[in-house]
Design a protein around this nucleic acid. Sequence first.
DNA 1: TATTTTCAATAGATAAAACCTATCATATAT
DNA 2: ATATATGATAGGTTTTATCTATTGAAAATA
Lengths: 291, 291
Amino acid sequence: MNLRDLKYIVAVADEKHFGRAAEECAVSQPTLSAQIIKLEDYLQIQIFERHRGNLIITPAGAEIIQQARIILDHAEQIHKISAFATDRFAGTLSLGIIPTIAPYLLPLILKKLASQLPKLTLQLKEAQTHQLISDLKDGKIDAMILALPTEETTFKEIDIYREDFYLAVPENHPFAQKKVIQTDTLDGESFMLLEEGHCLRDQTMELCRLKPSQIGQSLRATSIETLLEMVRCGHGMTVVPELVTKQGRGNICFIPFAKPIPHRRVGLVFRQTFSRQDLMVKLVETMQGIL
Amino acid sequence: MNLRDLKYIVAVADEKHFGRAAEECAVSQPTLSAQIIKLEDYLQIQIFERHRGNLIITPAGAEIIQQARIILDHAEQIHKISAFATDRFAGTLSLGIIPTIAPYLLPLILKKLASQLPKLTLQLKEAQTHQLISDLKDGKIDAMILALPTEETTFKEIDIYREDFYLAVPENHPFAQKKVIQTDTLDGESFMLLEEGHCLRDQTMELCRLKPSQIGQSLRATSIETLLEMVRCGHGMTVVPELVTKQGRGNICFIPFAKPIPHRRVGLVFRQTFSRQDLMVKLVETMQGIL
DNA sequence: TATTTTCAATAGATAAAACCTATCATATAT
DNA sequence: ATATATGATAGGTTTTATCTATTGAAAATA
């Protein structure tokens, strides 16, 4: 049995005439006749009684045609679903973002993004890199924004922006007077970092070549904001990405690093096999246009 | 798009594995893969994201699969309808019967017929021959029982029984003493007939070679029972088929005719193209067994 | 009654598709 | 580094759908 066959019998039921039904289905009359005979043969049941000018639908045939109409309706639905879905910039996108990006990037772009991609609905999830990677593999999210690279071969990455790091010190700290800072002058300083699992923690440790003794152990900071609060109170210093410095903050100085300026690449990551790659490109372009 | 394709994507959605889905569909994995790719291509939409061991259904794909399940359900319905309908002795049969047969034949057979063809429901319609012929052509009824032949080339006829005619006279009539009656002794007698349109009227006129002057004009009898009531009251005589004589009636004598005995053939008639010919044969055999 | 018209089925040939086996490519697990 | 698992690709075969032309049978018309 075949959707085409069902179309044929519905056409015959509508037209009560094989020739006209064939025309409606854009096939020749013998083709339509043969297919219907084959269907009747397959179902072991007669659907139509043929007479000239007087076509009778058998009772079972009428029931079958009723089902066929339902089936064709739903088949049409499938076409509609596809047609809608092929508007690649519409629909819902489930997007993961790491905690050191989300609160600083989202306020800058969400509003304009909604106006430039009006048919796109974002479903946001904030989690650490390793969690997002797992979610992306499982299909729980469609894409994610985080620090590149991910080292995952099954993912594709597109750079969105490059973000320089800054040293955050209390404004009464000696460093606060410096225009730039050399990473090798940080040797004895005491640092505060985010809790384990944040990529920013690892990046900071690496770029400042921190010894375990320099890292404040008492604190398990879950956010940059907490960290900055501690800095403000003079418990130590920390490193933050550029976007964090854009919001006005009292009592804290953000000192640029000397060249080569340490930074991170922030990008959009998705599965190589993801079905909406053109939306990914569009999304990145739109975000870059806003920033 | 094709019912087979829909079966394939539902199988993949269920199994989350192309190989197992192919097995379930009893085709090779390349076949299933190729068909699904072709479907995705045709719909211009990706239904699955392929990874090893981790198959993800796209949002649009999920909607399509939902529709596909509905469609396959209804397709299954079509199979069930056919399977039920191919029990050729089940279902409803719309049967027309002429008024000179219905009230005498039906009481004899209906009960036993219901027990011997328990799954068959009869929908009975009583009408004159010409009306039944028109209804049968239009498919308003499936078959009819009447006096043969119909002279219609598009119908098939099966004889059920042969029915001799009898002369009905009041018991005080001189003819009432006769064992048999010769048709050529009826010349001057006055007859009462059914109204126009009844085949029995025409048959009686023919077999008795009645002149218009012999036929009572005042009466437009719509049933044999009315006619017999008139005979009982001595208004004349009439001719009735054998089954009418089987019910005990006072004050009326039914005289057999001399050879060659005039009679009519009663049979089952249906369209040559009717889909339940084997039921027709079975029905006639069953009725003959009962009579 | 004979002829024409109408309508669906049949015949024969061609084109399209679905299918199979064998193999490849890639990612994951060992 | 090797083996395994999974889905895609290649090439060839079979099946199916389709076409045009024709036939057959009933109905309408002359």
